[in-house]
Amino acid sequence: MSMMHVNTTVNGDEVEFLCDSRETLLDALRDRLGQMGAKEGCGTGDCGACSVTLDGRLVCSCLVLAAEAEGRQVGTVEGMAEDGGTLHPLQRKFIEHAALQCGICTPGILVAAKALLEQNPDPSETEIRYWLAGNLCRCTGYDKIVRAVLDAAAEMREDA
């Protein structure tokens, strides 16, 4: 089968790749573009480990075809820290609060939490929990994750 040619933008960089029509954006990010931050935990949109933004909207990259990325803006965990390596406050707070153990869900949760804080700088605990309901974590019981997001939000409000 002939491959499809896709032009897209990932974390601000223009990229292009060839893919099978059945490949997902997650497949393309990982296998075609070497961006391994998004993880496949289920492939069916139930775990959120593959969370990315598409034109600013939070989505599961396993539920987007690679071909759909044509001409669009993709944001992944690899784009969260500033050039030069300065971490996003969420990234710092996740380390500080021990909000990760195995870390496989962490990239997806960070991308999702960043999307939340961009539209709601002062979320309640309940709002955080419901926003992140599609991001499964099996290690932490979510307690320290929620605390890290609350603390990062508070810091970002102070700095704003």
Partner: peptide
């Protein structure tokens, strides 16, 4: 801070499928 923290929050940590 955990020594594996930075790799895990930046997506650099390499898991089985990576």
């Amino acid at each position: 801070d955990r020594p594996d923290g930075l790799d895990k929050v930046t997506g650099r940590a390499r898991y089985g499928a990576d």
